[in-house]
């Protein structure tokens, strides 16, 4: 019970702090928080796949890229208003995930991991090679128009903040429900023991496919927000490194735990900013920190607990 209280209190404090953030922080830090928010969306969506269902997906950036490029192409070529491309980005990323999943999702553990790394690389190289003359090659696509929300053009980090963190809040709400539902339970059952899950009536193949497509589609929508924030998309934003970052966010915070994953997003995306003083050594410190934290807390900083109906 006390743990529940602590969690609730932490959630309230966090929500208040985030509401106040754009008013009290400098533009630079609000911009950092916007980036953290987009990473949080990616990490929360990967958490469904990796944390809840236990599928080793180290190519999440590929689906992020498909969404971002879908938005970039639709806005710059067809003049579609940016936020209206959200469903298209989700659909494109989801369909691509389904396509990838059919041959790949039956693979186990580390085989799946390396294949998703491969899919990520193939997508990045495809973008560099300007597939279908749509992606602009190594330079990418620039001049993506700013989004409008309620007639207001969102241009500054402060203006984008409510959009991005509103999306994060909605994602937390929806994924929290999902996690507590029968679907969430089935995912965890698949992760814990696939044979037992199937033997308890869970259509494990469908559960794996559904969560992979859903998580990937969500990453696609994060891509839309990324395009809105940057106004430029290029292949280098969607490399292996991005997938690794999101992967570590999920596991550092605690796979399967929403507060843990948020914490992971803040630490992995935000802390290097705090370490700017260390200059070129900051990634060294980051690598060391990953090792130390896994040795000290192998289950993550804020792990999921099995209790009640979870």
């Amino acid at each position: 019970m006390t743990r529940g209280l602590v969690a609730t209190a932490a959630a309230v404090v966090f929500a208040l702090a985030m509401t106040a953030a754009p008013f009290v922080l400098s533009t630079y830090w609000v911009d950092v928080l916007d980036s953290v928010g987009i990473y949080a969306l990616l990490a929360l969506s990967l958490n469904l796949i990796l944390g809840e269902a236990g599928l080793y997906d180290m190519g999440h950036a590929a689906f992020f890229a498909v969404g971002a490029y879908t938005t970039a192409i639709l806005t710059t070529r067809l003049g579609v208003p940016l936020l209206l491309t959200l469903p298209a980005a989700a659909l494109a990323a989801g369909l691509f995930a389904a396509l990838v999943a059919l041959p790949v999702l039956r693979l186990r553990g580390d085989y799946l991991l390396i294949v998703t790394v491969g899919v990520g690389e193939i997508v990045r190289i495809a973008l560099v090679n300007d597939v279908g003359s749509l992606t602009g090659g190594a330079n990418g696509i620039f001049g993506i128009p700013r989004p409008f929300l309620f007639g207001l053009k969102l241009r500054t980090p402060e203006q984008l903040f409510p959009l991005i963190w509103g999306a994060v809040a909605l994602t937390i709400l929806v994924f929290h429900r999902l996690s507590a539902s029968r679907f969430g339970r089935q995912l965890r059952a698949v992760r814990e023991d696939e044979v037992a899950a199937e033997g308890s009536g869970v259509n494990t193949a469908r559960a794996r496919l559904t969560v992979f497509v859903l998580g990937s589609a969500w990453a696609g929508m994060a891509g839309t927000l990324f395009a809105a924030k940057m106004t430029v998309v290029s292949p280098e934003s969607f490399g292996f490194w991005e997938s690794v970052l999101v992967f570590t966010m999920v596991l550092l915070g605690g796979a399967g735990s929403i507060p843990g994953v948020l914490l992971g997003a803040f630490l992995v995306a935000g802390l290097p900013e705090l370490f700017r003083g260390l200059a070129s050594a900051r990634m060294l410190v980051f690598g060391l920190a990953l090792m130390v934290m896994m040795v000290v807390r192998p289950g993550g900083l804020w792990p999921r607990r099995a209790r009640g109906a979870s």
Partner: peptide, 23 residues
């Protein structure tokens, strides 16, 4: 430890060594 913790530690070691090489 759980397998995924070792994966993250390995990634951390990789990042650490890569940056040590750079330095």
């Amino acid at each position: 430890a759980p397998r995924l913790s070792a994966v993250v530690s390995a990634l951390g070691a990789s990042i650490f060594l890569q940056n040590a090489l750079m330095l």
